[in-house]
């Protein structure tokens, strides 16, 4: 049985190390952006809940 030609044609080039730096940099930026957005959403929710508590009837 001859060798599977699909395995022979698979490229052998090494991926440049710079790609990892770029990928991890982009991922880091995305994570920071998500955390930043969450911070605002979190604050908005907590402000909303505080407001809700303040306006709640006092006799409950």
């Amino acid at each position: 049985m001859s060798e599977n030609p699909f395995k022979i044609i698979e490229p052998r080039e090494e991926i440049p190390a710079t790609v990892k730096k770029e990928v991890m940099g982009s991922v880091k930026s995305v994570v920071l952006l998500l955390r930043f957005v969450q911070l605002f959403i979190g604050d908005f929710t907590s402000v909303f809940i505080d407001k809700f508590k303040t306006n709640a009837p006092k006799n409950k």
């Binding site: 044609i9 698979e10 490229p11 052998r12 080039e13 090494e14 991926i15 790609v19 990892k20 990928v23 991890m24 991922v27 880091k28 994570v31």
Partner: peptide, 21 residues
Amino acid sequence: HDDFGILYDRYSEKVYHKCIS
């Protein structure tokens, strides 16, 4: 994000080769 680097190390060559082909 640094944990994602482990997955990158495992599969980057394969993905790169598929893109080249």
